[in-house]
Every structure is written in C-alpha cells, then in structure tokens.
Design a protein around this nucleic acid. Structure first.
Lengths: 188, 188, 188, 188
DNA sequence: CATGAATGAGCATTCATTCAT
DNA sequence: GATGAATGAATGCTCATTCAT
C-alpha cells in the first residue's frame, strides 16, 4: 500500500529540518520532497508551526514505544532500567534523524508548552519504575525529578557516543560497561 | 564607563535569541534593542551568521573561564572534578540565558563546524584531568570520549534541575548528594 | 419546502460579500455557510465572477419588481414617481444587504459591462414615466439622462437616511417632506 | 524637484486601484509602477490596508480643499452653495480617478470606521453653510443630515453626468440649469 | 565610525478550481 | 447531481544586507 500523503509530508519534514533547520526548510521544498503540492501540506497542517509540533509528538511517541519494549516481562528494577536504556540508545542509533531532531528542537521556541507537556506524559512508565526503585532502596534517595533529568542526560550522551561508534554497541560486554556509567550514577 | 557598541550588540543578540530564536530575531530589532543603527551591527559583524558564531565562542569562553576557577590549587582529582562541576552548574544558574543558548544552538546549523571545534578546544584542561584520573585508576576504564560526553550530559541535567530550584544549590549537603550522581557515574 | 441549493448559495454569497467584500469571501466559506460542498458551488456557477454577476442581476430584478408595484394603477405622473421613490426606499430599508451590495459593487471591476447593461434595462419603465413627464411639461427640460442619474442619486441618499431612522419612514407626513426634496429637484 | 517615493507610491496605487480594484492590484505591481522596490512600499505603509486608508484621506483632503475655494468671499448662501457644487463637480471631472475611487471604496470593508470619520470631519464647513441656510429660512426645514446626504448624492449624480459630457460643463447657462436640480431640491 | 532609507529575493499561506468517486 | 481532497499559481510581507551621507 502507498504511504499516505500526511505521512510523506512528515517524513520529508523530518529529513529537511535536521539538515537545514526550521527556517532553512521552506514549506515549498518540504512539499516538493514529499511529492505533494504546497496546498496539500497546508491541508493537513494548518501552519508550519503545527507541522513541527505534530512531528515532535509523533517522534516522541515512537521513542517511547521503543523504550517500553519487553520491559513488562523483566523481573527486576535493574533489568527494566537497563532494557529501557538499551532500547532508547538503540532507537537513537537507528533513528539518527529523530535523535538529532530532539537535540535541535528540544529547546526551540517553535515547540509550544502544550506540546512539551503532552510529549512528557508518555514518560510516566519510566517515572513509575524509578519511583519503585527508590521505594525498594535500590536507587539513590534524591528528588525523582533529578533521577529523570539525569536519565535523559545520560541517555543522550550514550547515544551520542554510540552513534559515532555503532559497532561497539553490538558488543554486549562493552555495552554493559557503558551502561554501568548510568547505573552507578543512579543506584544507591 | 559606557559599554562598547559591540558589547551592547552581543548582549542584545543573546537576549533575543534565547527568547525568539535565530529567525525570530531580526537584525533590525537586535540593533534597536542594542540602541545602535542596523548599519552599525553590520559594521561589527559581517553577517548575522558571523554574529551568532562569535556569540557562541564568547559564551563558551566565559563558561570555560568559570569552570577553571580555583582548580589549579586543588590537590586531588576528585576535588578538581567536583569544583569543575560546581563551577559549571553555578555558571548555568547565574547565566540562564547563556545556558539556554547552548541548549538551543548546540545543534543548530547556524553554528559552523569550525566554531564548534574552536569552542571544544577550551575543554582541553578537563580532558587532561580526566585522563590523569584514568591513569591513576580513579576513573572508569572507558574511552575518554565517553567520560567527556557523560560529563557534558550530567552537567546539563544538573543545571536544569538547579535552575528550577536554585536555593537547593546553596545547601552544601544536598549539592554533594547530587554531585555523587556524577561522581559515581565516572569513578571506578 | 426546502430552499434549493442554488438559492442557498446565492443567499450565503450576499451575506458574506456585504460584510467581507468579494476577496474577503472565499468560495470555500461561502459553500460552508450555504451548507453545500465547494464542488457544488462550482456546479451551479462556473466561476466566482459568474456568481457575483448572477447575484447582481437577481438583486437588481428584485429591486425593480418592487419599484414597479402598484404604479400602473396610479393616475398621475407625480403619483407614479412618488410611488416609485417610496417603493425603492422601502426596499432598501427592508433589504439592507441588497442595498449595501449595490453601494459596494456598483463600481466594482468584477461586474461586467454586459451585466451592468442587462441590469439597466429593467429601468425602462422609469425612463418612460420620466419621458412622459417631460413631454407634459411636468418635469424639467434637461437631458433625460440627468433626470435618471439624479433619481438614482437621490433614492440612494434617501435610503441611506431612512436606514438609520426607519421609524421616521412610517410617518407619512415626514416621508412626504423628504419626498419633496426629490420632487422639487426634478419638477419644472 | 523629484517626486518623493511616498508620493509616487500613492499615485501608482490610485491608478491601479480604480482600474483593477484592491485585490486586482498586487503590491508588487503597485511598487513596480511607482518605480520603487516592494520593500520600500512597506517601509512607508505598514500594510496594504494602511496604504488604501491613507490614500482615502489624502484624496478626501484634496476634494475638500477644492470645494472650499473662493467660498469665504461670496456674500450669499446660495452663491456659496453653488460655488461648492461647482467646485466639487469640477474636481470630479478633472480627477476622474479620485472620483471613481470614492465610488469604489466608499463602502469597502478595507476602509476603517476611523478613516471614514476622519474623512467626514473635513465637511464641517459645508455643514455650517447648510445650517446657516436653514436658520435664515433659505433651505428646507428637514434634519441637517438629510441635506448633507442629499448634497452628496446630487453632487455624485451631477459629476457622473458631466464626466461623460465635460464640454457641457463649460456652458455656463446649461451648468446653471443642472445646478437648479440641486438648488430646487434643498431650497425652501 | 555611525546612520537608516532603500532594496528585492524569498517565504508562508490562501484560494479558485478540478476531478475521481 | 453532489462531494471534498488535492492542486499550485499568486500574493502580502519580512528581513539581511548595502551604501550614500
């Protein structure tokens, strides 16, 4: 089946934004790359701002879905957290554009406060795991907020490293070693 | 003494960029806020791109100067690293605009590769400390690159947290607790 | 009985045009207000220009039908002219949208010369009355064209006044007084 | 001396508007005809709407200045009113574009209420003459508003006629005859 | 050095119209 | 007849940059 026009537009937008930025990506070119008319772009997204906000939420959803994969089944907190980290880094390696998108637009004034909040809601599952970890005295006794911030920062750093050295990520032993930088940070 | 026009322009630029972004900040308004003529702005900076690149390097310098403060005198690796972290976080809290600037433009296509490299060179002192730490078996045995990435990510996260809770940073005990998230991450 | 779609479109068009003007009234919104699809609008009217021209003629017809009412039966030239004036002003008061439409589009480049001529033909009956009035030495001996222009101008002015003061129009004595401004103008 | 750019833009705007209407006159073409850059047009007039509103007031001023010419010196009310009528019609004949402009945009949604009010204020002098005429029992005893409306309507009609037959306006006897249609209308 | 009027390429967005269903 | 998604040409407006003063 053919990709929907809406989807083609989002794909094209992501590709152009991460290379040329928001203002470096005219809607006319986004549309052309998506092989639709300009009018069509504005049929699906009222403004260019709406377009980037929708894109933000779609990518965030993908990332979150990926991070959750197989976590339920794991027995221990540590295993859950490790899987989450691994899933997130793997997603970043495999979706460099999405990863770059967050780095570029995470603090952009084009992303509205509402969008940011909606995007954040998806991380509830991670919050619950961390909270359980603290209650069981597995994780450090600091405000939950710090653990989450730290998680974000470390995942970002890990991904950055492995994006330049993707083959090392497939080495389980080495991957473990890097994971320990995360685990040692948050564990009691 | 009066601030120089060049300085006024850089100040105005920083303020506008972090609120409205690069494209949301017309040179005409930057000049007006700086109380100089448009022509004057282009007298000091050939293009708007040059302006943002110069600004990037100036802020990076400030951050680096701040991070270095008092480090020489400290005897141990751990103390040096702690001071560096504390200096960096304090700078972020006190210079929220500068801090936001890096979040927004760290991955921007407006910052050239050359600028990025020049900015990175200033961190040589940190690299040396880390390397010494590894040689003395104080820090984890992973590629130096990872330690540096992790440092960046964790400083960013810490600053984010303390920017929203600045009074907690003045509590030495609590600050120590948060520092441990960093130290435990990288230490052997 | 349900109004025909064609009629609903014409109604919607008139309402939007007098408020927002020709270009301020997208065919998409005209169609939406008429509760039909855009395609349907273009099924009944080949182009937006055809739409406004048809509308012009329809309203003109209505006005003319109203002006003619009961004139045949009146015995004197003066009575006929007075009835015509009264009918016209009353129509304007009761159809403010139609009245405004003529003020707005009477000189518009969207109305073609042909449409204008067709619209004018309906006023033949008035011309005949005026001509008879001149032949019987009741009306001033000036080119017929002037009498017609003057009639148009004065009806327009009278309507403008009474639209803001409609209750005064129902006062027969006062209405007579205002009619005299017209009658004195054209009578010998 | 060279015409100012601002003036050239206003001239060009008037010419295009009366031929092609507001929306039929792209700012790009207005600028080109005025021999200035598009940016220059927007340097002098913030928006196209501001442009048409300024133009409206400028033309209204011209008309009013013309209507006032030589009126002070005339001794009688009738002479003043006749001069006013003659001045207005002559202005219309000599400025067909200005005249058409009012016909086209007098009821346009592009002209703001404020502009309309400002334009109307200039007619204070005519109001005073009419009022004096009523106090001296020279003019009909109807609301002043009606006299003014009627004046506007009749001047418009007269101008319309003479624009198509300008040579007849220079025939003093005939001109007098037409003036009587106005005078008889308003005089007691 | 400093100014700010002038430039015109470039962009987001609109909207009349078409056409496959 | 009726629908409304899709089209893409057209337009108002912005803004980095220049240059004469």
């Amino acid at each position: 089946m053919e990709k929907s026009k809406r989807e083609k537009i989002l794909d094209s937008t992501l590709k152009m934004f991460v290379v040329n930025g928001f203002e470096g990506s005219p809607t006319s070119k986004i549309a052309k790359n998506a092989e639709v008319a300009t009018g069509t772009l504005f049929h699906y997204f009222k403004t260019k701002e709406e377009l980037i906000n929708v894109l933000y939420l779609e990518i965030k959803s993908q990332l979150i879905e990926n991070m959750k994969m197989g976590i339920e089944e794991l027995p221990t907190i540590r295993q859950k957290i490790e899987a989450m980290w691994e899933n997130a880094v793997r997603w970043g390696i495999r979706n460099p554009a999405g990863n770059k998108f967050f780095a570029m637009f995470g603090s952009s004034p084009y992303i509205t406060k509402l969008t940011r909040e909606q995007g954040f809601q998806g991380f509830g599952f991670a919050m619950q795991i961390m909270q359980a970890g603290q209650e069981q005295d597995i994780l450090k006794d600091v405000p939950l907020e710090i653990l989450l911030e730290m998680t974000g920062g470390i995942i970002h750093s890990s991904t950055n490293y492995f994006m330049n050295n993707p083959e090392q990520f497939e080495n389980a032993e080495f991957r473990q070693k890097v994971f320990l930088l995360y685990w040692d940070s948050i564990k009691r």
